[in-house]
Structures are given as structure tokens and as C-alpha cells.
Simulated scan of single mutants.
Amino acid sequence: MDLPVALPLEPMLAKAIPDIPETGPKGGALSYEPKWDGFRGIAYFDGTDVEIGSRGSKTLTRYFPELVETLRAQLPRPCVLDGEIIVRTGARGAEHLDWESLSQRIHPAESRIRKLAEETPAAFVAFDLLAVRDRSLLDEPFETRRRELEILLADVAAPLHLTQTTRDAAVARTWLTEFEGAGLDGVVAKGLADTYQPGKRTMLKIKHERTADTVVLAYRVHKSGAGVGSLLLGLYDDSGELRGVGGVAAFSDARRLELIDQLEPLVQRDADGNAVTGEGERNRFSSNKDTSFVKLRPELVVEVRYDQMEGARFRHTAQFLRWRPDRDPRSCTFAQLERPISYDLDRVIG
């Protein structure tokens, strides 16, 4: 494709901070926008052809044929857009983002892709403009890029959207609370004077953080073959059934080995004294990954930090905080989880 930026282009990233800032790290003015929970995508349009690149510079084009058609039909001139691919679900007035339906779109079969494109069509939310016609905008300040983006997308319609922004930190704090009910996972802050820096964590992201006491159900061996790679976690539902809700990982080399010894007394064993193991569901993004685990007696409680739920599971890997020997595992229920107030996605996306 003949465009004024190198392809593929790494997207600019964000670093996490705990609260909505009033100004940037160097005191500069900020623009705030919703943090969409989907697939990051950079859309390239040369006036004829469309390509969509992922955060890891892999192509997403074949998985979203409906977006290719939309971008080709609606974009008024050659350009490079930075944005997010999402799937919307729910009845009118109660729409929200649907991560599970979005993740199912990554499928090897062309027939399946076409079927899902009709059943669960995706949308593209643009939040930055990296090039237009024969001009690269990478060295332009965000304030300029945003203004050009608003001009470019002035007449587009769903499923192509322009994300909303505000320069009011108080409004951004409201978004952080309200928009979670529509499935969004935070707020992003960008310096108005900042240029676009591919691959660098220049933006700021503020995500929801909560804690929960969970029961340790099992562990997976680290990919190196030595020590514990992750702990599998569970919570009791209203019927008293212990249900898996996700995992916690990111242990140091020394801690992984310590955990093997610490968890040994809790390992479930069969009549012959062998450790009881299980097999988890394979992720379509890493189908060759070992998903086996060693089952434990549900007697150990750990407090973790998490950002949000996707159905009855943690949306992302949780973070280890501390052991809770004072907690009865049976007291670790779904009732302790904070549920966001429902909020209509249509009010966010417009």
C-alpha cells in the first residue's frame, strides 16, 4: 500500500496510573476519552484497499470482512486510523460490549468468519489519525490530529464511529464510573501537545481496580517446567458450587519454586497417591499452550486485585495481594464482588 507511514505501524501504548490526572507528567493540558475493551486495530486505507493491523502487527483483515467493507465505503480519502474493534450486544437501551463474541471472531475457517460477521458484526471506534492523503501526522500534536480526525469522520455512520473526548477531568471521572456499566474498562488521557510515538507508553490509562478474596483451586506448572506458573481461582455461587473465575500469575523465579512446596500438602491425590490433574479450555489465540493443571483441596484463600468481570470470570489475569489464612474458603462468594450499574453503550458511542 502506498501510504506516508511505514507498514505495519506499532500503536502507541499507555501506562497505568491510579487516578484521573488534572495535567500531564510535564504539566501539559490533557484530553480524556473512554478506554474501549476490544481489539486494538490500525486501519490502513489507500483509497482502494483496506488492511487492519493488530497491536502485535499481525493482520486482522480476514477476520472482519464487514469492517473492510465499511471502511472502504465510508472513508472519504486515504488515511491511517488508530482505533478499537468492538462487538456490541444487548437490547436497545441496554447495549454493552461483548468480549466473548469478539474473541470468537478469530477463527481459521472462512465460512465461520462470514457467519459470525453476519450474526455478531463488529464496529470500529476511531480515536487517532496517523496519516491522511500523502501527509504523515505522527509528528503533529494530538490536538491537531484530533481536529483532522473530526473533519475526516464528520459524515460517517455506524459501524464506524469517532470516540468522544473531553478536556474536563471532572467529566472523565464521571465516565470512569458510569461507562463501566456499558462494558468499558476505564479512561485514557492524552497530552494535547504530544506527538504519536509508536510502541511507546506515552498515553495514560486509568482502569478500575477492586479486590476479592478467592479460593485457590489448582495450579499450573510454569512454562519453564520449574515451579508454579499460575494459580487458578474460584468463588462459591448461590447454590454452594465452587466455580472457576480466573487466575493469578507473575511470580518471581524464587517464589514459583517456594509455591510448589507450599501447595504440596493441598494437592489432591488418587487411590495410588498420584496427583489429580485436569485440562483447561484452550485459548484460540494460543492453541498450543499447555492448559493442564494440578488440583488442590479448596482450603487456601488469597486476596487478589482485579479490574472488571466478564460474565462470571475476571476479564484479565488478577494480581496477587496476600494470603488470607483468616478467611473461611466458604465465605468467598460472588456476593463480595462490586457490580457496576448498567449503562447503555449507545450513550457512549453515539
Rank of each mutant, 00 (worst) to 15 (best):
L7V: 13
P8E: 13
L9E: 07
E10D: 11
P11C: 05
M12V: 10
L13E: 07
A16W: 07
I20L: 09
P25S: 02
G27W: 05
A29C: 07
E33C: 11
K35E: 08
R40P: 00
R40H: 13
G41P: 04
G41D: 02
I42G: 05
I42N: 00
Y44V: 03
F45L: 06
D46G: 08
D46P: 09
G47P: 00
T48W: 02
T48N: 14
D49I: 02
E51K: 14
I52E: 04
G56D: 13
G56T: 14
S57L: 15
R62I: 08
L67E: 03
T70F: 09
R72V: 10
R72C: 08
L75D: 02
R77D: 05
R77H: 12
C79Y: 01
C79E: 06
C79R: 01
G83P: 00
I85R: 00
T89E: 12
A91F: 06
R92P: 07
E100K: 14
S101E: 10
S103W: 02
S103N: 14
Q104T: 10
R105A: 04
P108M: 01
A109V: 11
A109N: 11
K115F: 09
L116T: 09
T120R: 14
A123G: 13
V125C: 00
A126P: 00
D128Y: 03
L129A: 01
V132F: 00
L138R: 05
P141V: 03
P141E: 04
P141G: 05
F142I: 02
E143Q: 15
E143H: 09
R145H: 00
E148R: 15
E148W: 01
E150W: 07
E150Q: 15
L152T: 06
D155S: 14
D155E: 15
V156W: 09
L162R: 14
L162P: 01
Q164G: 11
T166M: 04
T166V: 11
A172D: 06
R173V: 04
T174K: 11
T174F: 08
L176W: 09
E178N: 12
E178I: 09
F179M: 14
A182C: 10
G183A: 09
L184Q: 04
D185P: 05
A189I: 08
K190Y: 02
L192E: 14
K200A: 15
K200H: 14
M203R: 12
L204W: 00
K205R: 13
H208A: 13
R210N: 11
R210I: 00
T211L: 07
T211C: 07
T211S: 15
T214S: 11
T214H: 01
V215K: 12
K223M: 14
A226W: 11
V228W: 01
L233I: 12
E241H: 06
L242N: 04
G244A: 14
D253M: 06
I260R: 05
D261W: 01
D261C: 04
P265N: 07
Q268F: 03
D270F: 01
D270W: 06
T277G: 08
G278K: 07
E279T: 15
E281L: 13
R282D: 09
N283I: 02
S287I: 10
K289Y: 11
T291M: 15
F293E: 01
L300R: 08
E303L: 01
D307N: 15
D307E: 15
R313L: 13
Q319I: 08
L321T: 07
P325L: 04
D328A: 10
R330K: 15
R330G: 03
C332L: 10
P340Y: 08
S342E: 12
V348P: 00
